[in-house]
Design a protein around this nucleic acid. Structure first.
Lengths: 196, 196
DNA sequence: AATGCTGTACCGAACGTTCGGTATTGACCG
DNA sequence: CGGTCAATACCGAACGTTCGGTACAGCATT
């Protein structure tokens, strides 16, 4: 009884690290095919796990997998994207640094955003809370940088939204036209557009 | 034999009008659920036709339905959205008029874009050519208005792309945050942003 | 011996699609 | 005008496949 917390912590850490190793292929699947387009067969093939093993690691099925991916994505946002905004340098430098990491995450315009993918189909209502909070944190972090740089608060929030709009929109257009340069160009110009 | 052409014309017009009447519910389904998220049962329910009857009007199955929707959408783009750019008035007036019609088509930010929905999942490769051409025509029409207004050609094209990026991006963000005002605000400011 | 993990086999349900057949229509002809 | 006939519109039932999910037995590690 007294060791229950320790045991749980040990189990959890082992389980979570195991789970974490399946996040990259899961993320790739859900962002490219959307929730409804991903079948357990595809997941089994991508992860190398049989159906039974999938339900061992993710007892909640597909929903459990998506939730795990979103949790990991939230972690990545804090540790990598928003972390780039916290370090030293003026606003332009910080935003550029974030832009570089964002560009990597989207394979420079070749891979869609899972947040957009999950806004479609039967997944919309299920995962909207997590998606919403993630985007709001993102916007707030960008706005904070601009406000610290002396920008009017209201304008800074609008610019934060504009940043996400530019990222999401250019991602869609780049993929629809099969021209990743559209995304790259948008990302390159983004910091200046925001600080202007 | 001599009357064959007349008969065909009569048949064709009847068939196409029948097909056309099913376009609105089909468009609504595919834009909200994406290609993989739409099942024939949903289509049957939305159109009021039995599963088997669907194959009478769309022998090619789901792909046939999407292709029909895209053809109708192309028609709408020419007759309604781009037509708003051709009438009289300066660039700002023309773009505002187009923005109004676009806003209506997306239910003022409540409904997603089928072009973005079809860029995901198994539909991506199948329909990319039609989606690509549609978007290119759209961009070209916007750029043409700006060029006619005296804008540098290269800049005008970039602004045309920026317009689509703003529309698509704000649509995604508005739906993800469940706040259609984001889309409305973006659309209201768009004409000025483009002409600036 | 017990636990974590996996492969195999399997389930009912839903999938997209096809087939056979029945109303309904509309053009043609007596 | 009434009757004939082929084309069209539609549907119920079933096809084989795949879906998400489960039960269970065996393997490995401890």
């Amino acid at each position: 009884m007294g060791s229950k917390f320790l045991d749980n912590r040990a189990d959890m850490s082992r389980q979570t690290t195991a789970k974490q190793s399946y996040v990259p292929p899961l993320l790739d699947l859900f962002r490219q095919y959307g929730y409804d387009g991903v079948s357990l067969s595809k997941i089994s093939e991508a992860t190398g796990l049989g159906r039974a093993s999938l339900y061992h690691h993710f007892p909640g099925g597909k929903d459990d997998m998506v939730a795990t991916v979103l949790t990991a994505l939230n972690q990545w946002l804090q540790d990598t994207a928003l972390d780039a905004l916290a370090a030293e340098g003026d606003a332009l430098v910080r935003l550029t640094r974030m832009g570089d990491r964002i560009g990597d995450a989207y394979s420079h315009g070749e891979k869609p955003c899972i947040l957009a993918a999950l806004a479609l189909g039967s997944a919309k209502e299920t995962f909207q809370p997590q998606v919403k909070e993630l985007l709001q944190q993102w916007i707030a972090a960008i706005a904070a940088v601009l406000i610290k740089d002396g920008m009017d608060e209201e304008l800074a929030w609008a610019r934060g939204e504009a940043a996400i709009i530019a990222i999401q929109g250019s991602l869609i257009l780049a993929r629809a036209l099969d021209d990743p340069a559209i995304f790259e160009r948008t990302m390159k110009d983004l910091p200046e557009q925001l600080c202007r």
